[in-house]
Design a protein around this nucleic acid. Structure first.
Lengths: 204, 204
DNA sequence: CAATTTTTTGACCGTTTGGACAAACGTTAA
DNA sequence: TTAACGTTTGTCCAAACGGTCAAAAAATTG
């Protein structure tokens, strides 16, 4: 997770690696790791397979780079939750941010979901370390808010889990959501409706 | 989805097909469809690959049989929700049943999640048909309960989604849940804690 | 028992896959 | 011009994969 000797990269290398990661995100999020081929990614990135392997030494390396970048963005919204802010406002903002991520970055969400579903073989240390620490810290804050009577009392861990589950559901299970809502209600408005519902559910 | 000429099967065929599906559930739920090999499934079932292919004509056929059986169990809890029952009791029972499924059948849950994540290529018709119809029907009931003031008012569709998301989370994201809760709180009690939390969340 | 059907297996095949490699190409700078 | 370096590609390979097939083994039936 640290950087043992950071590699110096040319401009082209930075651009190409970025291009490859974008293509890989598209492919991996649709087919999962094992279901994706280097050829698919290479084609999506508009280059030949050997050329792609010049920038990433293996399929695994692409995936790891993607996950690494993803996890940062993943933890950010919870990091922003501020102990000194108004509890209701902080929770509301957190839900909003998570919902926006589900809407704007569904591929990242699905990629992460896939990794966890397979037993988190590549991010387990991160879950037990950085993520657990962060949640422990924020759970303490939420608990304090509840103790002060500024937030309805409940288990802060399951509270956070519930926010994760409900918001990510709209990215990960998007096809099911749309299928059930049907053509009329399944339009773009569904994220707004969901956000409004969740605010009431968690704060009402 | 119907049965065009139901095949007559010997006792051995019934037993072997069952054995294979159990093994396939184990393998598919861990590695996904593309990530699983026929050899893996055959080994888990304690037979040779050609022998397995004697009972199921392809990898796809195993998967379809599995999904078919799964979907029935999947819809059952919602089907049981009774219009004439007490709203709070009905919702509570529904949450309990879904939570028990997450605890007792996590492989089935993960298999389903995997299928949806990949865009539901094999169950889309079912989602748009049977599932949508069922949800439409139950949403109407919930809406009526809310109109009568017997249940807190909210969008019944997102209400149902939220129950799905939160309960299935404890099966699909189990490793993450355990990692965050840590060794102390991540024991078997987590399902009870979660169920209690969710009842309050949805009915409190 | 023998005849017939069902079940099991070893050997095999064509394709796909991740990855290696050397040769070619392009660019820049001495 | 040439040497050096970064980039790109065609070709190739070994392993893994889904699936076939003929024939042996086991079970069932007459």
């Amino acid at each position: 997770m640290d950087n043992p000797a950071k590699p110096k990269r040319t401009r082209i290398q930075r651009e190409r690696r970025e291009l490859i990661q974008e293509a890989a995100l598209e492919v991996f999020s649709q087919h999962g790791f094992r279901g994706s081929t280097i050829d698919q990614i290479a084609e999506a990135a508009g280059m030949s397979k050997p050329n792609l392997l010049y920038y990433f030494k293996s399929k695994e390396a692409i995936f790891v780079a993607l996950i690494d970048r993803l996890m940062e963005a993943w933890l950010a919204p919870l990091r922003e939750m501020d102990q000194d802010g108004d509890p209701a406002t902080e929770i509301r903002s957190y839900i909003r941010r998570k919902m926006e991520m589900a809407r704007d970055f569904p591929r990242e969400s699905r990629l992460f979901a896939n990794e966890i579903l397979q037993g988190a073989p590549r991010v387990m240390p991160l879950l037990q370390g950085e993520l657990k620490d962060l949640v422990d810290e924020k759970a303490k804050i939420i608990k304090e808010w509840m103790r002060q009577g500024r937030l309805k009392g409940a288990d802060p861990y399951h509270f956070i889990f519930a926010i994760w589950a409900t918001t990510q559901h709209y990215a990960d299970f998007d096809v099911q959501v749309r299928a059930v809502l049907g053509p009329e209600r399944g339009g773009e408005g569904r994220f707004e409706d969901a956000a409004a519902f969740l605010e009431k559910l968690f704060l009402g």
